[in-house]
């Protein structure tokens, strides 16, 4: 009887240790899978989706947006598709987003992964849904395979664009090869483009020469070092800029001193 408390304690501690050990092993395998599974930078989300990192945190994978879509644009990622499983996405080359003005897919979202405020316009505290505010992706043109840049007349993407003349415009330039024709090249404007993919859907080439990329992949960022001095609104970015001073061995002294110091160089 005397030894029983000790052996009970030993048994408890041992089973606890075993549980922790097995958990650690499980965590290793499980986290490796989750890490790979959530990394899908090439996926296009429904309108109003939060940034990808926040989106996959929030989305509960219920498919209510998929059911709300009248065009069957959205589908839930199936196992084996290399998209975080069960999350909604669309493939514009197959079915683009047709930009419903009442955006049925967004208000039904129960988890907040599709954010209504991000696609609402506020006039005197009254919100109305505005699909043109959606930023699902950005159309990017591969000039090599775009026949309009060859000089062949094609404006399929320009005509398909729901923001005709705004998100895609046609730029004229002289065709030096023939000397008497014009190039009519499509140009995408990222400040207008919603990423609906109707251009990609309409493109006549075998693999679309214009395709939608997630904005995080398609766009760069200038940073605070360069400002359009001729644009008063761009000057505003200076307000958030920080002064950075880079110190190197050469910049310790003043410029003149450094240049005059022949030995130091």
């Amino acid at each position: 009887m005397k030894t029983e408390p000790t052996s009970d304690r030993r048994r408890f501690l041992l089973s606890l240790a075993r549980g922790i050990g097995l958990s650690a092993m499980g965590a290793l395998v499980w986290s490796a899978y989750v890490g790979v599974a959530k990394a899908a930078p090439l996926v296009l989300r429904p309108p109003g989706a939060l940034k990808e990192e926040e989106f996959i945190k929030n989305c509960i994978k219920c498919g209510l947006c998929v059911e709300a879509c009248p065009y069957d644009t959205l589908s839930l990622a199936k196992p084996g598709e290399n998209i975080p499983m069960g999350t909604p996405y669309f493939t514009p080359r197959e079915i683009p987003c047709y930009m419903c003005s009442d955006i049925p897919c967004v208000p039904v979202c129960p988890s907040g992964a599709l954010s209504e405020p991000s696609v609402s316009r506020y006039v005197e505290n009254h919100a109305t849904l505005e699909i043109n505010l959606a930023r699902m992706g950005l159309a990017v043109i591969d000039e090599n395979s775009c026949i309009a840049t060859w000089g062949i007349q094609c404006d399929a993407c320009y005509r398909a664009c729901p923001l005709l003349g705004q998100a895609i415009t046609i730029e004229y330039s002289k065709n030096e090869r023939t000397g008497k024709h014009a190039f009519l090249k499509p140009v995408v404007h990222p400040d207008q483009c919603t990423g609906c993919g109707m251009c990609e859907h309409a493109c006549v080439t075998e693999i679309a020469a214009i395709h939608i990329l997630p904005r995080a992949l398609a766009m760069g960022r200038v940073g605070d070092h360069y400002i359009k001095g001729w644009d008063p609104s761009d000057e505003k970015r200076l307000e958030g800029a920080k002064i950075e001073v880079t110190k190197t061995k050469l910049s310790e002294k003043s410029v003149l001193d450094t240049l005059n110091d022949a030995e130091g160089l």
């Binding site: 499980w30 986290s31 899978y33 989750v34 890490g35 599974a37 959530k38 990192e53 996959i56 945190k57 509960i60 994978k61 975080p84 499983m85 069960g86």
Partner: peptide, 11 residues
């Protein structure tokens, strides 16, 4: 909590 995504829901 660690991975920033609902872990069991993914599997």
């Amino acid at each position: 909590a660690v991975m920033g995504v609902a872990a069991f829901e993914l599997i």
